[in-house]
Design a protein around this nucleic acid. Structure first.
Lengths: 363, 363
DNA sequence: GCATCGTGTGAAACCGTTTGCCATAGACTG
DNA sequence: CAGTCTATGGCAAACGGTTTCACACGATGC
């Protein structure tokens, strides 16, 4: 048994008050001799201070929660790691909450974190956006309202909430300009001479998906190109794969841009398995810049995940009401080997003779 | 403010005892009328029961901790997701603890979890193994001893600890036979006719690395082959990449087997970028079967991560002292497209003419 | 008509800390 | 030498719940 402070105090022949003061960094003075006796007694019984009791009385739980879609998704994992790194150094615990983007689960977790009096909660992902009137189910709307209300309640209790993407509730924000990021990657691809470029979206109704799609459309419009080849996706590998399979039967597009890296990798892998030369025949680009993207040499744009997680955690810990300014971190275009200048369509036909190394020579 | 139970009770005109009984699932009877009054009052003040106070008195924190190397590593992410899924359904919180495999950090986190009276802690990764006497620094030895001691102390307090890989302390185990898994993948590769096969290890001193290396060596010996081309690695992409670069200058081996998927992908990607045909010229295999491995069609062996995490969490929640049996989950060989039968060395020279599709035809 | 019950409620102890307030005792100050 | 400090230490009241024990009361069993 870890032994209570009372037991330590008894063994050291002092009061619990003194034991408490000796064991934690209290400003109240304790003589060296007694301090030592207490330390000894504590070691003897293997004393482990109850963080729970401490939290109850100090009203500081030293807990932060990170609400993510799925921790296996590198996007969320990197955010979580950023948050955990600063939390750990401050002696805080980091709770990971997988929701699979279900608002009901987000709500349940938010309430649970409220119950635990977490000092802060980070919403890592984007939220459901009120789709055109009527298109969202009543249940969805109600869920959105409930979540907003819950967030308000939580914040009223002094819990700091920060979101890392667009959300329809009030909170601190440490975001990135998704629309601009998407605009930039699209412009880049267009600048390589591609004219027919497809797009694979993120989950419908998600604010992040919407912003990225809008960026794509704006860039295409500015390039004087048509943006009508938009395929629905879900931010996952499978989505990219399915789109690629649909693409492969007919004349190939010049490029395909995906709403995130995971689906871009799905497109990339599947297209290559089908014998398509990338970037020789078609260029592929994503958005996020996860670790895997570096592995597969994917052209993408970096929207610093780790940093956002870390900064968000710092905002929570630094109690100072610097809560004010919404922080928008810069994104950065990362051209890599899955995009290349458009070839004449004549050379496209020759793909069967293309040596394997063509896939990487553009590096 | 969330309002306390006392406030709710006052508003409902009842005692806190009754309010408590009405709000949680107590077996003690409460009349429907009063129950309703209390529910109403709770809703009015936005009552959020303090899980901290509850934990203090019930001595159940409803918290479990997962100690991992790095949550961004898919291996650990999948384990964590498994644990979190069962924890969430039980209303438990899951704490993620990144240690980068540093024993000191593991120790610090274990103590912190002890302080929080976590109901269980899962050690997801393997541990430092006592390297041949004298080869480990005194500090390391002391760290190992300290950790064992801390685990003992924690367990004495009724905290359930389960490890998912070999550890040098007493605990429940939900493992996989790493040595056998490595033996199997190696045998498989040999069965394809490869004779010169290299190996990329995991971090030195890690029990998991040792077991996997041993499996490789045993299988090679049983196949009558030499197992002397062993390159040190660190379970990461970079390790694989570096080995691949070193390999590429000289005569290529028939196959390279890596201690885990991440480094195998490093080898795979780098070799391909260097113009090597995989699996035409060299076969590449890993061990783990992470999500990414499916993406890149890597031959590997599945050592169920998600399941181990889930089962471990279940062991923690099911208070029954079924603590006994060490559970060893079956692994499963997953042949995919990065391995193929060995070609005659003559045909190897023809790689420049190999069409791109060769990389996937073995599927 | 009386002991026995089941049902519904409240009082109070307890969980393990922190901390405000008070007590004691030398050390100093004038 | 009285009056103030300063350094130490203890008492007891929170913190916000749960749970044991006692108790009240109408119904039931004989």
């Amino acid at each position: 048994m870890a032994g209570s402070l009372a037991e330590v105090a008894r063994r050291a022949g002092v009061s619990v008050a003194t034991a408490s003061r000796a064991l934690n960094g209290s400003r109240h003075p304790v003589s060296d001799e007694i301090r030592e006796r207490i330390a000894l007694a504590a070691a003897e019984v293997g004393y482990a201070p109850s963080a729970i009791a401490q939290a109850l009385v100090t009203r500081k739980s030293r807990i932060i929660g990170v609400i993510v879609g799925d921790i296996v998704d590198p996007y969320f994992a990197e955010i979580t790691r950023g948050a955990e790194d600063v939390a750990r150094r401050a002696g805080y615990l980091t709770i990971v909450c997988n929701t699979d983007r279900a608002p009901a689960t987000e709500l349940a977790y938010l309430r649970l974190l409220h119950d635990y009096r977490a000092e802060g909660v980070i919403f890592a992902g984007g939220g459901q956006v009120a789709a055109g009137a009527g298109s969202a189910s009543a249940a969805q709307l109600s869920e959105g309202a409930q979540l907003s209300e819950a967030v308000e309640s939580v914040r009223a209790d002094g819990i700091r909430v920060v979101s890392l993407a667009a959300r329809n509730f009030e909170s601190m924000r440490v975001t990135v300009d998704d629309r601009a990021a998407s605009y930039d990657i699209t412009s880049y691809v267009c600048s390589l001479g591609h004219r027919r470029v497809c797009y694979v979206t993120g989950p419908p109704g998600l604010s992040t998906s919407a912003a990225r799609l809008a960026g794509f459309q704006a860039a295409m419009a500015d390039a004087g190109l048509s943006a009508d080849e938009v395929h629905p996706g879900e931010f996952d590998f499978l989505s990219g794969q399915q789109v690629a399979l649909r693409l492969v039967g007919r004349p190939l597009p010049d490029a395909v841009i995906c709403a995130n890296d995971e689906s871009a990798i799905g497109v990339l892998t599947t297209l290559r398995q089908a014998g398509v030369d990338i970037p020789g025949e078609v260029s592929v680009a994503g958005l996020d810049d996860t670790r895997v993207s570096r592995f597969v040499d994917l052209t993408t744009v970096s929207v610093p995940m780790y940093e956002r997680g870390a900064i968000a955690a710092r905002h929570i810990l630094d109690a100072g009401p610097s809560a004010a300014g919404d922080l928008v971190l810069p994104h950065r275009l990362v051209p890599r080997g899955t995009t290349a200048r458009r070839r004449s369509s004549g050379s496209k036909r020759q793909r069967r003779e293309t040596p394997l190394t063509a896939a990487t020579e553009a590096r």
